[in-house]
Amino acid sequence: MNPTASAFFTRPPSAPLPATRPLRPFFASADLEETRLRVGSVMKPHRLDVAGRAQRLDARMHHASFGDVSLSLLAYGAEVEIQPGPLEDFFLVQMPLAGRAQVDSGGQHSDSGPHEATVLSPSEDTVMRWSADNQQLMVRVSRALVERTLALQLGRALDAPVRFQLGFGWRDNAMWMHLLGYLQEMMAQDIDVSQHRLVSQQVGQLVAATLLAVQPHNHSHAAPARCNTVLPRHVRRVQDHIQAHAHEPLCAEQLAEVAGVSVRSLYAGFKEFLGVSPMQYLKDLRLERARAELLGGSTHVAGVALRWGFGHLGRFSADYRARFGEYPSETVRRH
């Protein structure tokens, strides 16, 4: 095991929450409604019920964000039933450090424990029951990032939402364990990675690519669109430029100049390898960045929209809802 991950994993199942120095305390509460709202603010609104009147909630959560990826430690201190429904815009890897969780999602069932995690897919309806001693380490990664990463690997647009196998033998997977150790190392540096855009993008891409590599999903055996799935240099150059300068004014002619090809060739390359035009790629990325700000606590929707190049607030709201299933104001109210 990677020694940097030992604070999370080298402990008896009955021990309390592990050393959480790299993860900042997010909340502690014995109130059911407060707990539901606080957990929902970093996950999604959900139904939460304590099993039995005699039990007393003793919820604790630690949390750190990397932009499109976040890491959390959560314990309820009582047996609870959680009904989030479909997660919609993110995948969630849940790794019990102690206790057990019965998880039903998309027709699959897992009696999850310290040696079996679960991977929840956003399109699947989910119901869970956590034991009173259950403590979960959770990695949340945006749906858009995972699907964009897979589309790049396949060299074409996806023809169906990504759905992972539910059960995940995480402790026996060296790649996943090294990834968790790397994330803990990043947090231990006491640097807010989410404030460093390029770094947080690289961390997100690493998490998405690792999850796709280590856990079976419905596209695992899909054939790439081309024998060579490496993006052409001009497409990769423009993709990198867009990610680094998404907050700046950009037009097709500028992007073609960056690529060193004609506008027509640039559009053809993006359509063939990414399934979208370069300007649609830019728009989607800006919407994701705007959502990340709103999820991160920003309450000024108009300011966020303008910062990411959306001058018409009504159109921004409509595009946002079409992509994420809710209006920007609804995202703000959830926090």
Results as ranks from 00 to 15, higher is better:
Val93Asn: 04
Asn134Ile: 00
Asp133Ala: 06
Pro96Lys: 05
Glu147Cys: 02
Ser142Cys: 10
Pro122Gln: 05
Pro84Arg: 04
Glu81Thr: 14
His109Gly: 02
Val93Thr: 11
Ser142Ile: 09
Met128Arg: 14
Ser142Trp: 14
Glu147Tyr: 03
Val119Ile: 08
Ala151Asp: 11
Asp133Trp: 13
Ala117Trp: 00
Gln135Met: 10
Gln136Phe: 08
Leu152Tyr: 07
Asp111Arg: 13
Asp111Ala: 14
Arg100Pro: 07
Leu97Ile: 03
Ser112Ile: 00
Gly85Pro: 02
Val103Met: 08
Gln136Ile: 13
Leu137Asn: 00
Gln136Leu: 14
Glu124Asn: 12
Met128Phe: 10
Thr126Gly: 02
Ala101Asp: 05
Asp133Val: 06
Thr126Glu: 03
Arg140Phe: 06
Ala132Phe: 13
Gln102Val: 15
Pro122Glu: 12
Asp89Lys: 06
Pro96Glu: 03
Ser131Lys: 08
Gln136Cys: 13
Arg129His: 06
Ser110Ile: 09
Ile82Asp: 07
Glu81Ile: 09
Leu152Gly: 15
Gly99His: 10
Val127Asp: 11
Ala144Pro: 01
Gln108Ser: 12
Pro84Cys: 07
Glu147Gly: 00
Asp125Met: 12
Ala151Ser: 15
Ala117Phe: 00
Glu88Gln: 15
Asp104Val: 13
Thr118Glu: 09
Val103Ile: 11
Phe90Glu: 02
Gln94Tyr: 06
